[in-house]
Design a protein around this nucleic acid. Structure first.
Lengths: 124, 124
DNA sequence: TTGACATGCAACTAAATGGTTGCATATTAG
DNA sequence: CTAATATGCAACCATTTAGTTGCATGTCAA
């Protein structure tokens, strides 16, 4: 699955996810419609949409002087499904690994994220 | 869901996804183990792992002089599930929108990505 | 036809990102 | 103890990225 990359990268940006949300709310919007109310230039939005297109997350059609944008649900579902399956059949295993790891006598970082800095033990 | 962002960004990089794959293959590996065979410095790998940790995709435990890394399947499943649901209940709608859009008399870009450049219609 | 509207293109900038090198520190094996 | 091993930290660098501005082009309505 080599061109997952484009999809992952496309989804990495919050503005682009917001654009997808907008299309999710109403499919087939024009560029200007998608720009409305965003604190971003039209050009910025254009660039985001291009990236979404290149990841095949959005398809476009020219309608006279305006460009309509449509969600393509396929790649996102494909990835979500693949990654879910990937982690799901081992999910309980991973969870018990994790639990064991965190409970072990070593104080896992992620479980206690904001511990005060441990006083450095005096060097030998 | 505000801290999806960290997860999406963490998953955006192919090296990090590869690290997750490695952990998926064998959970609880040390830093040096995770470095083996990668054409990347240990420091680079460390940075990637930190990003994965900050996204809570990986948890770590210190074991003597080595650091063990464990997959946390929760956030990735959460996101996958949420995005799948989001697009799934409208999936057929989106697909028919898409089909209609692509079939419309306008030649959609995404569907026919490598068309030869259309001869420009002569200007008025 | 003309002007307003919708989009496209290019050059530029600032900041984030992925990576490196060099050195410091902690732990374990002899 | 000492040396080898495992990791941590900081400064630095190159590239990518997200955004801007300015201008060009295409299309519609009056």
């Amino acid at each position: 699955m080599k061109d997952d990359d484009a999809v992952f990268r496309a989804l990495a940006d919050a503005s682009r996810r917001r654009l997808l949300d907008r299309l999710h709310a109403r499919n087939g919007q024009t560029l200007s419609e998608l720009c409305e109310g965003l604190e971003m230039t039209r050009q910025a939005v254009t660039k985001h949409l291009v990236i979404l297109e290149e990841a095949s997350l959005v398809a476009t059609r020219r309608e006279g002087r305006e460009k309509l944008h449509f969600i393509n649900p396929v790649p996102i579902n494909a990835i979500a499904e693949r990654w879910m399956n990937k982690f799901d059949h081992r999910r309980t295993q991973f969870l018990s690994d994790l639990k064991a790891a965190l409970e072990a006598d070593g104080a896992a970082t992620t479980a206690r994220p904001s511990l005060p800095p441990q006083p450095k033990r005096k060097p030998r």
